[in-house]
Design a protein around this nucleic acid. Structure first.
Lengths: 180, 180
DNA sequence: TGCAATAGTATCGAGTCGCTACTATATGCG
DNA sequence: CGCATATAGTAGCGACTCGATACTATTGCA
């Protein structure tokens, strides 16, 4: 077995074990991942299409996932005014609470030294960028790191969509984001 | 969002994207994980129970997974002589071929610097040990790193099960393994 | 000998997931 | 303008995962 395969198995196993032990209430791992995404994504990026891009699955599957989250009261949906094909989802208080609940893996990662956490962060980001380049998928990074992000006097702005951004919004992730 | 949550999401997303893009033929991610495990586990550790311990799932689920792999010709099963409750699975040539096929994530990890690969290895191992300690599950490390492993003149031996081990077997993983 | 522990399986219901087919809306081009 | 094409989302199918529960067969211990 190559060292890369060993690494890959470790990553997969960590994710799997966290998913297995991290069930909260009636949410399976995918449903929880969807909630995590909605908690981080900005208002332009909370549609089924974007979620499927982030999760690496199809729109059909995501549609089902969101339908069940809707039925269980974790999210609400709203059709866009400007483009009537688009639906934007939002977390309810109940969903927000789930997003803020740490998993067993969170606790373990917190116990690592700051140095280890930073290295891990950097190495995983590098790997992630390469995977995404291979998939030709968007990065979903935060606005503040984007080439279209410009800091004005009264706040920041997205020069691509021509909208003002609050400080909070600059930290949210966006499907259009391109690392500067 | 805490930095740990960000790390956890990166791990989960990498695993998810690899699973999504890494379909080989008619095998889903779990089925592939099962094949990877069987390729690495020694002859004492290739039963449904051990696989379920490794994957963090239940015996019932694993039983189904192995049944479908059996039907599709990736594995064969054999009842143990000594304990007639136990079934040991083995990869067919077809299964072996799958285990040796690298995934997209393998390729990406290979492009990382040797230093990054080593750091990642160490940090993930540390995290894994803590997760397993929390779950009270076995490590499934290779025999050669085990407290019960003793190197004799003609080869190595497992002092727990009292069996001689070939060089190859010392590199396989075992459900009884306890890091020295 | 008898009873608890263990290994594995069957079955159920909810859900994932790729796939194909479908509807509705938007957009580009002649 | 009008029509073709692209895009957003959904419905339904079949294979499968997964937790849960209930079950059989075998083993081990008191």
């Amino acid at each position: 077995m190559t060292p890369q395969t060993h690494l890959r198995e470790q990553i997969a196993r960590l994710a799997r074990l966290d998913a297995a032990t991290g069930w909260v209430g009636d949410l399976n791992p995918t449903q929880r991942a969807a909630i995590s995404y909605l908690a981080r994504a900005n208002r332009f990026s909370r549609s089924p299409s974007h979620l499927s891009g982030y999760l690496g699955t199809t729109r059909g599957t995501v549609s089902q996932t969101l339908k069940s989250l809707l039925q269980k009261g974790y999210v609400t949906e709203q059709r866009s005014e400007t483009d009537k094909r688009v639906i934007s989802f939002e977390l309810t208080d109940r969903g927000q609470k789930i997003a803020e609940t740490p998993t067993p893996l969170d606790a373990v990662l917190k116990e690592l030294s700051d140095e280890d956490q930073q290295s891990l962060q950097h190495i995983l980001s590098r790997a992630m960028r390469r995977v995404l380049a291979q998939n030709q998928g968007p990065e979903f990074g935060p606005c503040r790191t984007c080439v279209y992000h410009s800091r004005g006097e009264a706040g920041s702005e997205c020069s691509l969509l021509s909208v003002a951004l609050t400080k909070q919004e600059s930290d949210q992730i966006c499907f259009e984001q391109v690392s500067a």
